[in-house]
Computed example of a mutant assay.
Amino acid sequence: MDWLQVIVLAMVQGLTEFLPVSSSAHLILVPALTSWEDQGLAFDVALHLGSLSAVVIYFRRDLIKMTRSWTRSVTHREMDSDARLAWAVILGTIPVGIAGLLLKDSIETVLRSPIYLAIGLIVFGLLLSWADWRHKGEREVEEMNWKDVLFIGLAQAVALFPGTSRSGITMTAGLMLGLSREASARFSFLLSIPVIVIACALKSFDLATAGVPVDWAFMIGGVVASGISAFLCIHFFLAFINRIGMQPFVIYRIILGVALLWMFL
């Protein structure tokens, strides 16, 4: 790798992680369309660490309140809206954690293919379009029940299929349950935190045990660039999502998916 590849991949990751267009799809796509070698899942996870720092910083006040309330719910059994939201994030993470452990080998080999990528972009893009058009809800995150949370959690597990988009499928599920666009996006962003933490921890363990040399300058540079672009993406996405809706992202997904099928079939 060189610094141009590092910065381009970091910007791509930061700008697509929280948009419903599949960041993993773009990280696979870039080397497929250039002369660059695939950067590998280890660098992908480093870029996700930058995205993690962005969402933690952006929602830091919410996370502090959720953590305090969750602690009280455990020690004193005092349950308020922040504690329920914290428990919802935990419950919503369980399905993808189980699926990730069971499908780890397939994800790293067979499924990292432009064809699967294109299929995921188109199919789940159409599903997002239908949910955004058909289900114009006004429910807020605080109004979710445990069945709603589990449904969104199961949807998140589907995002292990490349091209699905973790943020896209969780927003789709939220819209189908009657959540507003902003509420769907907010819960999707909060739900990303434990998922990225788990992915980074597992891959870090793999790297440590394998003894693979790591270029820490590139890794740190990727984390910083990804974090900055992801923070800006979150800010502007939440500011404009109610105005622009999901259809522009659907159109982009379909065009990209069709182009990939034309190129690789």
Rank of each mutant, 00 (worst) to 15 (best):
D148M: 13
P162D: 08
M171Q: 09
R166E: 09
L175F: 14
V158I: 15
V158K: 05
D148W: 10
A173L: 10
L179K: 01
L179T: 02
Q156W: 01
T164N: 03
F151D: 04
M144N: 04
R181E: 02
T164Q: 09
T172P: 00
L179C: 00
D148L: 12
G163K: 11
L179G: 03
F161I: 15
A155Y: 07
P162G: 08
L160P: 05
G174F: 02
Q156I: 02
G178S: 08
L177G: 04
G163W: 11
G174P: 08
K147P: 00
L175S: 03
A159F: 12
W146L: 00
G163D: 07
M171T: 13
L150R: 01
L150I: 14
M176E: 08
P162I: 12
Q156F: 02
E182I: 14
V158Y: 06
L179Q: 08
D148Q: 08
G163C: 14
A157P: 05
V149G: 06
R181Y: 02
S165E: 14
A155N: 01
I169G: 11
S167Q: 06
R166H: 08
M144S: 05
F151R: 13
G168Q: 10
G168W: 05
D148R: 06
M176S: 15
T164L: 04
V158Q: 02
L160V: 11
A159C: 04
G178C: 07
W146M: 03
S180H: 11
W146N: 11
G168S: 11
G168A: 14
P162R: 04
V158F: 14
T164S: 06
K147N: 13
T164P: 05
W146C: 00
S180R: 01
N145S: 01
K147D: 07
A159R: 05
Q156H: 08
N145H: 09
L175G: 12
L154F: 13
W146V: 01
T170Y: 05
T172I: 07
T170E: 00
D148H: 13
T172F: 00
M176F: 14
G153Q: 10
L150M: 15
L154A: 11
V149A: 09
A157W: 08
A173C: 10
A173S: 15
N145I: 02
D148T: 11
A159I: 10
M144W: 02
N145T: 05
L177M: 12
S165Y: 14
F161T: 12
L175Q: 13
M171W: 07
G153S: 14
A155T: 08
F151A: 15
G153D: 11
Q156C: 03
A173V: 09
L175T: 11
R166V: 06
A173W: 03
V158A: 15
F151W: 15
R166M: 03
I169E: 04
T172L: 03
L150F: 13
A157L: 10
L175Y: 11
E182V: 15
M144C: 06
